[in-house]
């Protein structure tokens, strides 16, 4: 899989002129690799994900999603790679129960019940399968959103700051859940965050993005490799990186 975004501009709106958001962002996630994309808020991370997911078609880019090398046939009709997207907010359809939200994204009815059953058990939501999203707690909605992304058995899993604006205990449980789901179903992951420690805890590799326009300033592989990373390892690597981050973002990125 290869992503190369030469430039992405937002058109001029009102008094604000045209804005160059992304410039020359290129990287190649390996199959099964967990790539964290780290950068300050508003630097264009979500824009980058939307381009990869095919939601934003107005850019100069080449996104080559082929060769996410999996043996099983792609489940989508057009033989595209299946994408599981976990947005910043859960974005579950409120007029469908948890189960029906999952069923909707499955391309075929074939073995749908088994897949839904398995993934709901994995995120511990079997008892909430007939519940409407409005009645779920925040943590449960996030788990349901994770379940929806995993139920399609994605070739590419995209997560856009999925654990922001929830309490740290819930966020930690959800991070563990994500690691566990990934160990069951290895998937190429793009994970956007502005929490460096979270990126180190979960990813194989971190891409550092700068702002205005966003480009990759550093590409760091995390040691030691997943999944044998202890809290001490994470802390040590975090410390080491913080000095580096400080120098990378010295040019006033905290001015959001």
């Amino acid at each position: 899989m290869r992503i190369h975004i030469r430039s992405k501009r937002f058109p001029a709106v009102g008094d604000a002129g045209e804005k160059l958001v992304l410039e020359n962002v290129a990287f190649e996630p390996q199959p099964g690799e967990f790539v964290a994309i780290f950068g300050p808020s508003g630097c264009g991370k979500t824009t980058l994900l939307n381009i990869v997911a095919g939601l934003d078609l107005d850019f100069e880019v080449s996104v080559d999603l082929n060769g996410i090398g999996r043996d099983r046939p792609s489940p989508t009709a057009r033989n595209e790679p299946a994408i599981g997207y976990v947005f910043q907010t859960p974005r579950l359809l409120p007029w469908k129960t948890v189960e029906d939200n999952l069923r909707l994204v499955l391309p075929s009815e074939h073995d749908a019940d088994d897949r839904i059953e398995a993934v709901l058990r994995a995120v511990d939501l079997q008892d909430a399968r007939h519940v409407y999203p409005n009645r779920l707690s925040v943590g449960m909605s996030r788990r349901a959103a994770l379940a929806r992304a995993f139920v399609v058995e994605p070739d590419l899993l995209i997560l856009d700051e999925p654990f922001v604006s929830i309490d740290s205990a819930t966020a930690n449980r959800l991070r563990d859940l994500l690691s566990e789901l990934l160990s069951r179903l290895p998937t190429t992951v793009l994970f956007v965050t502005h929490d460096l420690r979270e990126a180190i805890a979960l990813a194989d590799r971190i891409l550092f993005l700068s702002t205005h326009p966003a480009h990759i300033t550093a590409d760091i592989t995390i040691e030691p490799p997943r999944p044998h990373r202890t809290t001490a390892d994470i802390d040590a690597f975090h410390k080491k990186l913080q000095t580096k981050v400080a120098s990378v973002f010295r040019t006033g990125d905290r001015s959001e």
Partner: peptide, 9 residues
């Protein structure tokens, strides 16, 4: 966007 990213058609 959700519908599009999951390729609902």
């Amino acid at each position: 966007e959700m519908a599009e990213s999951f390729r609902l058609g």
